[in-house]
Amino acid sequence: MTSYVLKRLLYGMLTLLVLATVVFFLMKSIPGSPFELEDKIFPQEYIDNLNAKYGLDQPIYVQYFNYMKNALTGNFDNSMVMTGMSVTYIIGRSFPASLKLGLCAFFFSLIVGVALGTAGALSKSKKFNYVISVITSLGISVPNFFVAMLLMILLGVKIPVLPIVGLKTPLHYILPTLALSFNPISMICRLTRNSLRDVLSQDYIVLARSKGTSERRIVLKHCLKNAFLPVLTYSGPQFSALITGSFVIESLFSIPGIGYEFVSSVSGRDYTLIMGLAVFLGVIVILINLLTDILSAILSPQIKLEK
């Protein structure tokens, strides 16, 4: 198990290296620079000075090695656009909002999705399962900004019962959480239902029944653990996606989160901030993937017992 974790950790670091490289070259391939924006016209010497200060006048491979060195040591320069603000400061300012909202959305999705999926798999009612299928199909195909706008219009404007700007009070979390959750709830519900149905039709369930095991115990003891694996495999990446912020939802609800920050850093060609955020988000995603793999291993004895 330990060597398994170490191996995954090594892969994670390699992935991070590749990610940072790809981000660097992608970033460089977008035309424009942090100091040449349409509305801000600076004198040429001023721009040259700034380029020199941030090393942008160096050949591209030198810039690459500098960036990689900074990325790997976690030592990022200040933002190129927001003068005087360090990348760490910007992350510290924007990440908590995204994290809190993401956690709400994730756990809400997981609980509702697993509960609905389990109910669907155990229910013999065709109607109930039909309703679930229709709702989850919608949830999977409708984009979340549409859900968000619908919710805002219905519950924020037409019948103004819930706030739609910012994240000041717990009430503020409800609408963005719902908007973020509809899709993952649908996915988790379907995964749970299908995989639980699949497990229920396995031979070992027949053997468990032949021992006189109660239906309740069959579900709790024999099914859930096995049925949860596909759900876990999906939930890990979904968890990272949710806590790393959604630009669309954060913009719609005016939440100063990291998703919003990331997109504005790209449109502002804020190279240091882009690299910093990319590496930060990359580390989160990789760590959570690792955690997911470890959890899956714990759930399945075959992996757990491998040396």
């Binding site: 396995q202 027949v206 096995n226």
Partner: peptide, 10 residues
């Protein structure tokens, strides 16, 4: 079939 009638995770 003894391969499929025992629960793999118990």
């Amino acid at each position: 079939d003894p391969m499929t009638f025992l629960n793999p995770s118990l």
